[in-house]
Simulated scan of single mutants.
Amino acid sequence: MRIRDPRAFRALAHPLRLDLVELLSVAGPTTAAECARRLGSSQASCSFHLRQLAKYGFVEETRTDDPDQRKRFWRLVETDQAWEARDHPAAARELDRVVVEREATRVLDALADPAGEHADAWRSPLLSGLTVPMSPGELDSVWRRIHDLLEPYAERMRGRAEVPGDAAWIRLFLAATPLADDAESSPTDAEGQG
Rank of each mutant, 00 (worst) to 15 (best):
S186V: 00
A92Y: 00
A11V: 14
T105Y: 08
P152G: 04
G116A: 00
A54W: 09
W83Q: 05
L111H: 01
D109P: 00
E22I: 05
R93L: 14
Y153N: 07
G159T: 09
C46S: 10
D166Q: 07
A32E: 01
P187Q: 01
I170P: 02
D80T: 04
R158L: 15
V59H: 06
F9V: 12
M157P: 08
H88Q: 05
R123D: 07
A33G: 03
Q43C: 04
A110F: 04
A27S: 04
T62G: 09
Q69S: 08
E94W: 14
L126Q: 14
R158D: 13
L20G: 07
Q43S: 03
E22C: 05
R106H: 10
A161V: 07
C35E: 07
S124E: 09
Q81D: 11
R70N: 06
L108K: 03
A82G: 11
R2K: 08
R70W: 15
E22H: 08
A92I: 01
A36M: 13
D140F: 03
G28H: 09
A176Q: 08
Q193K: 13
E117A: 10
P152D: 10
A82S: 05
A104F: 14
V107Y: 03
R38S: 11
L50E: 05
A92Q: 01
T131P: 00
S25D: 08
A36W: 13
Q69W: 14
S128Y: 09
D166K: 08
P67D: 08
H88N: 15
Q81V: 15
R93N: 04
V98C: 07
A180L: 02
G165E: 13
Y153C: 13
L172P: 02
A32G: 02
T188N: 13
S135C: 00
S186Y: 02
S41C: 06
Q193A: 06
D140N: 07
A44K: 02
D5E: 15
R144S: 15
A36E: 06
A85F: 09
Y153M: 11
T31K: 00
Q43K: 14
H147F: 07
E138S: 12
A32D: 02
A33T: 13
